[in-house]
């Protein structure tokens, strides 16, 4: 199978639409017959990423590359960047505004969840320029 590439625009205005891209990826992976746990991990990583892009960056892009042995997710935004990545990675740390917290997000678990559910996780960020998060989920058959 050649690598399948999927591209999504993540709308920064629409909070309730966050999850559309992850749901679509989930559906595609299901149709391709990927193991359930790989699908779940990919979907969670991607949804957390989408939510972050909506909350903090006013929108961005998601690119997903599907190969038989791995799924790679790249989230790109031109938001404010992350001044202190180490702090942002610690569980419970969040700069999300109150209205976002009222929706059930902003618990400071987004980046930790992405790291936890991916096999490779990388943040490239520059303050004032934007952030790119790259995650790889390895596919183990029989999961």
């Amino acid at each position: 199978m050649d690598a399948l590439k999927l591209h999504y625009d993540v709308d920064g205005e629409d909070f309730s639409a966050a999850g559309e891209a992850s749901s679509n990826v989930k559906k595609v992976l299901r149709q391709l017959g990927f193991p359930q746990e790989a699908i779940r991990r990919t979907a969670i990583c991607m949804y957390e990423g989408e939510i972050n892009v909506v909350i903090h960056a006013g929108g961005g892009f998601a690119d997903v590359t599907v190969e038989p042995e791995r799924i790679t997710i790249v989230l790109t935004d031109h938001g404010p960047g992350i001044p202190d990545v180490e702090k942002a990675m610690s569980e419970g740390w969040s700069t999300a505004p109150t209205k976002v917290r009222e929706l059930g997000f902003g618990a400071g678990m987004g980046l930790p969840n992405m790291k936890r559910y991916s096999d490779e996780f990388r943040i490239d960020t520059t303050v004032g320029v934007g952030t790119t998060v790259t995650m790889t989920v390895n596919v183990t058959q029989g999961q």
Binding site: S16, G19, Q36, L103, G104, F105, M109, N113
Partner: peptide
């Protein structure tokens, strides 16, 4: 807290929540 739920709930769990907005579905 939705991210908490995504991080900790297991596949196949019955999820009990008082959250009632659209993100619950996702």
């Amino acid at each position: 807290l939705l991210s908490w739920v995504m991080g900790r709930a297991s596949a196949g769990d019955a999820w009990v929540t008082i959250m009632s907005n659209v993100n619950v579905a996702a």
